[in-house]
Design a protein around this nucleic acid. Structure first.
Lengths: 195, 195
DNA sequence: GACAATCTTCCTACCAGAAGGTAGGCGAAA
DNA sequence: TTTCGCCTACCTTCTGGTAGGAAGATTGTC
């Protein structure tokens, strides 16, 4: 009854952790090979090219994120709780250094020199996340929970930027707690408790 | 009377633009060589190792940033204007794609796998920027210009994260205008015009 | 069920080119 | 006469990627 993680999943797992640490050019097939004890050529069997590997990786991440966000929406009825749950997810990740950074945020920085097939997928993820945040904010406004000074789409972009910037700062200062310090006041502001 | 840019400055210039595009592992001595028409070995003459090259590069950037921020403080007496001027600088950069991203922000993402001599310099820059923003915010509060919901240090961190996140979003969406859309409401909020 | 045919997964053994870096020389300037 | 800036030539290691084969599992057919 052992948990069966297929080789290709293992490859994606460690590739993801390597990208989170050093970006697209920060890892090689040899790194993966060493990490999971399989030969380089075997990795090429599963993912013929690097661009393909990362494309599949981002697709998987996108899917996980989408279903994660959807289940958050189902689990909590209050938009405020939904937002808190989303932020809490990253808070935990960053504290435990599990994936201490969003793969897509990491890759977005290198956008200009990524293979187009990867870049377009990153863009898609950013769109999805923005859309989700927008709809949560909109719901919050309709329920009289949030007070926004801008259109929900814009507030969503602001929130997203805050989250990504907070990840970066937490990393730059080697201070996981900084993420929370930066990001929780954003919710407070949305709730209009500052007036 | 030609403007004399020394070779080492040229090397740093194009290295910086390459890092901004693809990070530490996103450029090579061969790239620089091709870009300025000098042999690889000649670059090693100026900067023996890559870690040294990037260290000097970050040092130069840090100095430029510090003196830039200081001159902003001298040029504008109002903290609000000082902040606007800082944000305006990046706005222009991102629109013109001159350096469409902060080198240190770019490198901060790769922190975990950077040579320590580089990493410590990145950290220092983040500290400097945070300190500058903090003092501007504090001055604004003292002058009754800003209404902060948190301590100036924390608001500075929030602002900094916003700026870096906005850079990332602008890049991800290939939309320079997005930077402004994300970042200007932050000043509006500080000015307390939302109440 | 027997048996061959076909995947699938992994392997060894390569390859060409790019990586960062070194040794040593040459001409001009100081 | 030394220093400076640049060169050619070379080295080692790593890079993404390929060719071809061995062992086991899965399949279709009788």
């Amino acid at each position: 009854m052992e948990s069966k993680t297929s080789t290709s999943e293992k490859i994606l797992d460690i590739a993801q952790s390597l990208i989170v640490a050093g970006g697209y050019n920060g890892f090689s097939y040899a790194d993966i090979s060493a990490a999971i004890g399989i030969r380089k050529a075997s990795i090429h069997h599963h993912f013929p090219t690097k661009a393909e590997l990362v494309s599949v990786l981002v697709d998987r991440y996108k899917r996980q994120a989408e279903s994660g966000l959807e289940s958050v929406r189902k689990q909590f009825s209050s938009p405020a709780e939904q937002l808190r749950s989303y932020l809490n997810y990253w808070q935990t990740c960053i504290r435990d250094a599990s994936p201490s950074f969003c793969v897509c945020a990491m890759l977005a920085g290198e956008m200009q020199m990524l293979p187009e097939e990867v870049a377009s997928r990153i863009r898609a993820h950013f769109h999805n996340l923005a859309r989700w945040l927008t709809s949560v904010l909109r719901a919050g406004v309709e329920q009289g929970l949030f007070r926004l000074n801008n259109r929900p789409e814009e507030e969503a972009q602001m929130l997203m930027a805050s989250v990504h910037g907070a990840m970066l700062s937490a990393r730059a200062f080697s201070d996981p707690g900084l993420f929370t310090k930066i990001v929780t006041p954003q919710i407070t502001k949305l709730l209009g408790q500052d007036c």
